[in-house]
Design a protein around this nucleic acid. Structure first.
Lengths: 206, 206
DNA sequence: GTCTATACTACGATAGAC
DNA sequence: GTCTATCGTAGTATAGAC
């Protein structure tokens, strides 16, 4: 119980302020417990940080799991089937980027991408790798005109479109003149993302 | 002289570790001077942080300035002209994302996007706003079939494609099985980015 | 298991010598 | 202008009471 409260407070604090920026005292206080509980349950600040990474990986795997399930069960072979699978994955990813609940996760991961620590291994092996591999398998099928490496690069750019919704959040809000992403804006964003994704996937060689 | 050394060390430290994570002692040591020099020149840690934001904004403005100059001088009116302008801007931005020298800048900006402080105002007003406004003007011209808001969203996604090269750096390297982005990979990435950007800009309504 | 008390380190700010 | 010395605060870790 205190274990869980510590973990969820830690996600918030580490996500918002980074490893150095977050304070174990503040995390303990937010959990209504003493700082030494962190030592008892996680062995210290670093142990807590790694536990957060593992928890995030599990949550992502759980959220993206259903989509992956559908895709993998379907025995996808045609470019059109692959396109539909990719659309579903991009949309699920974009929804996660938009959801305020996952804000701390995204920040946590983004920090780790730029300055990877041991936590990045857990994130990548626990969740990201599965996503990326499925995605890359599909895009190779969807774009048979491209070499494998070129197809991977295309996949990276497709992911980037969704990523910007979180990583460029402050600028996105300024451009659209909003404070946060409301339901209508989200609908429009997803519709537009669908359109741009489709046009990239249907891109004709010049 | 010491002023410049402090500033450049600060960019590196703040970019890598964030505001709380960076230590004034470490920055001073890296500059070969005493910590109190920071107080003298910048008034304190926060003053130094803001000075870094301003410096980054200037650097970006200087780097992206030439492209903006060309675009604005050309009196762009046709969709085809706008497409060429957008391609140039996206490419310039992607080059900046790939360049290792700008790694600290990007990290600095990304942090500010997710948890904006007073430094974000300086970044946005000093550099980002000009870029974004030019970009959005062009995309409205390039995609006359879209409403303005839809066009803006499309522009956001286009930027995201380049952004992922920095923000998802660790994953990009894993997918492409490289340690860092070499010249040949950079060439391929830019070529692919050009193709996906073009297909988004030429997207036909269904 | 959880809390209190304490030890120890590192931080940023500041005063004062040069 | 730059450095040294020092202060107060906040950080993590740890020992020990309950």
């Amino acid at each position: 119980m205190i274990y869980d409260r510590l973990l969820s407070a830690a996600i918030e604090h580490f996500g918002r302020h980074g490893f150095e920026g977050a304070s174990t005292r503040a995390i303990a206080a937010a959990s209504g417990t003493a700082m030494s509980s962190i030592t008892y349950h996680f062995g210290g600040k670093e142990g807590l940080y790694l536990a957060v990474a593992e928890h995030i990986a599990e949550q992502i795997a759980a959220r993206q799991g259903p989509v992956l399930e559908i895709i993998r069960s379907g025995a996808i072979t045609t470019p059109e089937q692959a396109r539909q699978g990719l659309l579903a994955m991009v949309e699920a990813f974009a929804r996660m980027m938009i959801a305020p609940e996952s804000g701390a996760w995204s920040s946590f991961i983004v920090r780790e991408q730029q300055e990877p620590t041991a936590a990045f291994e857990r994130l990548y092996d626990g969740a990201i790798s599965t996503l990326v591999e499925t995605f890359m398998t599909l895009i190779v099928i969807a774009r048979p005109d491209l070499e494998e490496r070129q197809a991977y690069m295309t996949g990276i750019f497709l992911y980037g479109q969704a990523l910007v919704l979180r990583v460029g959040f402050a600028s996105v809000c300024r451009v659209l003149e909003i404070e946060s992403i409301d339901a209508e804006t989200e609908r429009q964003l997803l519709a537009r993302l669908r359109a741009t994704t489709l046009s990239v996937l249907s891109e004709k060689p010049e």
